[in-house]
């Protein structure tokens, strides 16, 4: 059994975007703060800090979760994926490029979380329709752009990926 005391800092290690990372965390440290302050990966944003806005969305072992509702010590040994892992160097991926083309972002505060949710959708549900895309987007708040361009961008990516794979 693992037992970590409240006042101590404890080692936390996991795979972040395919790279091994480690740091130290008190039990109460949120995964958002661990990523941003301990690791310096500031791509994951923090909006409400109580699970409502979706800005902090990341993937843990492939699942899409709110990083502000997860403690860093809980993901020890897991695979964590964040927005920093999406582009290949300077090459944006298809979803990011579609967002750009469709003006699916303005300030970009909500965008990293939204892209993480959508990355799962386009991977797992090649035949998702507009209403399913909207359902996934309902877990995110965007305060400046609106969601129309995002839906258009995802639909385009889904169609292009289906065509490429011939499904």
């Amino acid at each position: 059994m693992l037992y970590l005391s409240a006042d101590g800092r404890h080692p936390v290690r996991f795979t972040l975007n395919g790279r091994y990372v480690e740091g130290e965390a008190e039990p109460r440290l949120l995964l958002t703060d661990f990523l941003r302050h301990e690791i310096g990966a500031t791509g994951t944003h923090v909006g409400c800090e109580h699970g409502v806005c979706g800005a902090c969305t990341v993937r843990v072992d492939g699942l899409v979760v709110r990083a502000c509702l997860v403690y860093a010590v809980q993901v020890d040994g897991c695979r964590v994926d964040t927005i920093e892992g999406m582009a290949d160097g300077d090459e944006l991926n298809d979803l990011q490029l579609a967002f750009q083309r469709h003006h699916a972002l303005q300030c970009g505060f909500c965008t990293p979380g939204i892209l993480m949710s959508l990355s799962q959708l386009v991977e797992e549900e090649p035949h998702a329709d507009g209403s399913r895309v909207r359902e996934v987007l309902s877990g995110h708040l965007c305060r400046c752009t609106g969601y129309y361009g995002m839906v258009a961008a995802v639909m385009e990516v889904l169609a292009a990926r289906r065509k490429a794979k011939n499904v």
């Binding site: 059994m1 693992l2 037992y3 970590l4 039990p27 109460r28 800090e49 109580h50 403690y71």
Partner: peptide, 17 residues
């Protein structure tokens, strides 16, 4: 906001829990 401090235990079995 941030939570107040707490100990964190992760039992592997029901008995430990």
């Amino acid at each position: 906001m941030k939570p107040a401090a707490f100990d964190y235990a992760r039992p592997d079995t029901m008995d430990e829990a």
